[in-house]
Amino acid sequence: MKIGKHTIVFENTPVILSTGSAVGPKEKEGPLSPYFDTTIDDVYFGEKTFEKAESKFMAEAIDLAIKKADMNKNKIDYMFAGDLLNQCISSGYTARNLSIPFFGLYGACSTFAEANILAASFVNAGYSYNSVASASSHFCASERQFRLPLEQGTQMTPNSQWTVTGSGATLIVKADENNIKDYPHISMATPGKVIDLGIKDIANMGAAMMPAAFDTIVTHLEDTKRTPDYYDLIVTGDLGKLGSKLLIDQLKNYGYDISKQHMDCGVKIFDTETQDVGVGGSGCGCSASVFCGYIYPLLKKKQINKVLFIATGALMSPVSLGQGESIPGVAHAFVIENLEV
């Protein structure tokens, strides 16, 4: 059912039965290290190339999600996944080994939310009983696609972000009397518009994506007639320290105070003071691994019960930047809740 301008209500409450997360060495050194299912010391993950490694991270996350739910892989109807690499090769090559029908998605770093919204929609509509949603990124693979070779000796600018190496996957299933009590469900989604306020600096993606996050949050709150207090946590994907600050300030100007509930996955996953990551982490793997490794378990243990999750993406490419285009942002939101008892 649609309410307001752009918000979907999932009346059949698709359930997130399990999640899996796998991350690389830098994330292992970070503050969320104990929460991830798998942490790998080798950026190659035993493979020959970074791209193959990224695929393996996604395969690992999906495998973990399926195993934790004790489900047979054959029972999964569809896979919704995407990544940052050209032609979505990480997801495509992961799907090659899974034999699950595959929808390849691109929403830059918002892909994880996009995948979950689509999987939840399919399950809600009854087109699917069980679906997986996943996203991945790899620091080394995206550096070489979007920026300069790794061995190139250059300085990091103060507002740039560090692409997370890792992946997260959720298993979304049809709700029934038993699972709905014990597992969090996806109750709503607000897909976002593409918004561009003219930022051209590829080393300041947080500022480029912030207006999209602002727009989606405001749309969501207006559509649902809720205030930020309704949520225990309002999570943004990878705005970083600067983008988060701008978002909180601007929302406050508009009349919504989210400073108490707000958390940014990019700020949370690294220690920005000691890890030399600029203003925080980024990449599809950032929001995916933090949601699957950190936020979902909190929901499942019922330490928190209502989460608004907004993954933000910057939809540029080296080609568009070369042609003088600015960086458009997009942000998709979905709500994860526990059934009230």
Partner: peptide, 14 residues
């Protein structure tokens, strides 16, 4: 489409 509820144009935002 550059209008947002934030009420800033490109120049102001930059």
């Amino acid at each position: 489409m550059n209008y947002t509820k934030m009420g800033m144009n490109e120049k102001e935002y930059t």
